Amino acid sequence: MKAVTWQGRRDVRVEEVPDPRIEEPTDAVVRITSTGLCGSDLHLYEVLTAFMTPGDILGHEPMGIVEEVGAGVPDLSAGDRVVVPFQIACGGCWMCLNALPTQCETTQVTGEGMGAALFGYTRLYGAVPGGQAEYLRVPQAQFGPIKVPEGPPDDRFVYLSDVLPTAWQAVAYADVPPGGTLAVLGLGPIGDMACRIARVRGAERVFGVDLVPERLRRAKARGVETYDLRDYADEKELVAAIRDETDGRGPDAVVDAVGTEAHGSAAARLAQQAASLLPRKLGAPFAERFSVDRLAALYTAIDLVRRGGTLSLVGVYGGMADPLPMLTMFDKQLQIRMGQANVRRWSDEILPYLTDEDPLGVDDFATHRLPLDEAPRAYEMFQHKSDGAVKVLMTP
């Protein structure tokens, strides 16, 4: 089959690889019909290269048709249409039963000290072959795959794999009070969708911050009060402008949907680039002990949120040596929630919104649809935010 493979920093290729097969009774094999390109994939493209191995199959936002199931998968059959969550979880351990499938005790990558295994996401999360491919082996298929109805196009449901539950959890963790205010830093796919979800869940005002014109236009068209980072001399000016709209206090909650590749962190960017250029045998230990993030977005979130407010961190961070303004965080009495999205915890709540009325705008959420063969161009375009690329779907 064809699959998108990682070969090195900023080097992905579509190659022929062996077809997946049933290896355990709880496996399924899914023929992929649509697969997304995620901002997290870009971290593998440049920042987290020390944890990658040439030939790793990328991707964690797939959906498709079940081809085959193992004997331990009673609720799926060949021909079922499914969305595959990005994490691999059993559904029966203590963590899963307590709505934390990202911490599944059956698939935890204990050798790396990490949580549940993820599709297509470094050896830290199990080095499981991902879904940017023609076929995908799905472990723990007795729990993971979400059956969806025939009929509507893939765009209606594919975002259940990651974008929708990640944005939903970000808003749920933000815990905006009825009629309250929320600021979202970063209007890429997750930030954009978080704004939409916040509005349908009752936030009175949503402020969105970015510096990419297409992202700002999309958010503004959905009723978000947008702020172009390029219009302000520094983050203090931006914070002051939003505080002026919230009685001088700041919003009730802030979602950081940027993460480790934030603009405005020049020194940290240089450190990340230097680490990514090291040979893997040197780069991985260095990254595990001394890795840093570009923290501009997080610092802005801490400054912006009102006292007693909530920070919801959904952008991926990976640093181990990052300085944080603990005095400010403690003095402001901030609540902070974060983590990978627990997809199956939220999927049943989200499904009623995926109707013909399309209140979340999923049907036209993708800006680009490309064949899988054009994955290298898709990665480059998404990395450089060129051609108005906000969300890319690929079709094998």
Results as ranks from 00 to 15, higher is better:
1 M>W: 13
3 A>I: 05
14 V>D: 00
19 D>F: 08
22 I>L: 12
23 E>F: 03
26 T>A: 14
30 V>R: 14
30 V>L: 09
32 I>G: 00
33 T>K: 14
33 T>W: 09
33 T>C: 03
49 T>P: 00
51 F>Y: 13
53 T>G: 02
54 P>K: 14
66 V>N: 02
67 E>T: 05
67 E>P: 00
72 G>I: 08
73 V>I: 09
76 L>M: 09
77 S>G: 04
81 R>Q: 04
82 V>I: 13
83 V>G: 01
91 G>E: 06
94 W>F: 11
96 C>V: 01
102 T>P: 04
106 T>H: 10
107 T>E: 01
108 Q>Y: 05
117 A>T: 10
118 L>G: 00
119 F>I: 03
123 R>S: 05
123 R>K: 14
125 Y>A: 10
128 V>H: 02
129 P>T: 02
131 G>Q: 15
132 Q>M: 15
134 E>T: 02
142 Q>L: 07
150 E>C: 01
151 G>C: 06
158 V>G: 02
158 V>A: 15
158 V>M: 15
169 Q>N: 03
172 A>M: 07
172 A>G: 02
175 D>T: 03
177 P>A: 10
178 P>S: 09
179 G>I: 09
182 L>W: 13
183 A>E: 04
184 V>T: 00
185 L>Q: 11
186 G>R: 15
193 M>N: 00
197 I>V: 10
198 A>W: 04
198 A>Y: 13
201 R>N: 09
201 R>K: 15
204 E>C: 00
206 V>G: 03
207 F>I: 01
208 G>K: 15
209 V>H: 12
209 V>D: 10
212 V>A: 08
216 L>A: 07
219 A>I: 06
222 R>I: 00
228 D>Q: 10
230 R>Q: 10
230 R>W: 05
231 D>Q: 11
237 E>N: 07
237 E>R: 13
246 T>D: 01
253 A>V: 03
261 E>H: 02
263 H>Q: 09
269 R>A: 08
270 L>A: 12
272 Q>M: 11
279 P>Q: 09
280 R>N: 02
285 P>Y: 06
289 R>W: 08
293 D>I: 04
297 A>Y: 10
304 L>H: 12
311 L>I: 08
314 V>Y: 08
315 G>R: 11
316 V>A: 11
322 D>P: 02
325 P>F: 13
326 M>N: 06
328 T>Q: 07
330 F>N: 10
332 K>H: 11
335 Q>F: 07
339 G>R: 12
343 V>H: 02
347 S>R: 09
349 E>N: 04
352 P>H: 09
356 D>V: 06
360 L>I: 04
368 H>D: 10
371 P>H: 12
373 D>M: 06
373 D>P: 01
377 R>D: 08
377 R>M: 10
383 Q>H: 06
384 H>L: 03
387 D>S: 12
392 V>L: 14
394 M>E: 00
395 T>R: 12
395 T>P: 00
395 T>G: 05
